[in-house]
């Protein structure tokens, strides 16, 4: 997507959610949640299980449509976009790192990382050379030819980070990215993710219930009972 088409004015938030409400059946998952973030920011979304953290992230990423409320990406409302445009957004502007399951088991690590580029129509050679760079940067170049089932959890998660960042996204959505990892691997993945995001000036939405992971953020938003809350501490 041509970035020039969207509002780049610094005064406009990169991503903004206003009064989101979303129910699954009778139970509300989001009940007036909001968020506002700027380029290069790492925001932790914290809260107990079932509080609506993931739902908020999915709405922010345009994967779920909120029942009411707005999600604005650079001033454009996601819910008004067609599926095709939102898919394109996910491919070019957004990146995703989940706890597990986001890699395609049939494809090798290299192919997985190259996938978003190729879906966008890039030639294989170019896509794979870029993917290789990212694998190297995330210190997993040695598993390039292996499939997700053949790598360790930490390696797989780094491959996932590489894939999320390969398109040069403006926002990375990370949902419990270290949830299945031990402390050491988790720390490493977070360091690499945040460092890479800072380098590319990408914003990160980091859903986690782990304080030490949240400590990699610049600020945190707490979601409780579907409502979000941000604490402004006096310096």
């Amino acid at each position: 997507m041509n970035a020039g088409a969207l509002i780049t004015d610094e005064s406009v938030a990169l991503l903004e959610a206003i009064d989101l409400r979303k129910s699954f059946g009778p139970t509300p998952a989001l009940d007036g949640a909001g968020l506002r973030m700027h380029a290069g920011e790492v925001v932790a979304v914290m809260g107990p299980s079932g509080s609506g953290k993931s739902t908020l992230l999915h709405c922010l990423a345009g994967i779920l449509q909120p029942d009411s409320g707005q999600v604005l990406y650079r001033g454009a409302e996601l819910s008004a976009m067609s599926d095709g445009v939102r898919s394109e957004l996910r491919r070019t502007e957004f990146g995703f790192v989940f706890q597990f399951g986001q890699l395609v088991p049939e494809l090798t690590s290299l192919e997985n990382v190259a996938l978003p580029l190729r879906l966008g129509g890039m030639r294989r050679k170019e896509a794979e050379s870029r993917a290789t760079e990212w694998l190297e940067r995330l210190e997993v170049a040695d598993v390039a030819a292996k499939r997700p089932g053949e790598t360790s959890g930490g390696q797989g998660q780094r491959v996932a980070v590489a894939r999320a960042l390969v398109t040069g996204p403006k926002v990375v959505f990370a949902d419990e990215p270290t949830g299945a990892l031990d402390s050491l691997n988790g720390e490493r993945v977070m360091q690499l993710l945040v460092a890479a995001a800072k380098d590319t000036n990408a914003a990160v939405v980091l859903v986690t219930h782990e304080p030490r992971v949240a400590a990699y953020s610049d600020r945190e938003v707490v979601v409780r009972d579907g409502k979000s809350r941000e604490v402004e501490l006096a310096r």
Binding site: M1, N2, R74, G75, A76, E77, M81, V85, E88
Partner: peptide, 30 residues
């Protein structure tokens, strides 16, 4: 639908235009 969305839609569409590019995409997906 607001105006900024209209713009984004147009630019998104622009890249996959042209029969040649479309065919490449198709072949690529298959």
């Amino acid at each position: 639908m607001n105006s900024s969305d209209n713009r984004s839609r147009e630019t998104v569409g622009a890249r996959s235009r042209g029969p040649g590019a479309l065919l490449t995409r198709w072949v690529g997906d298959l």
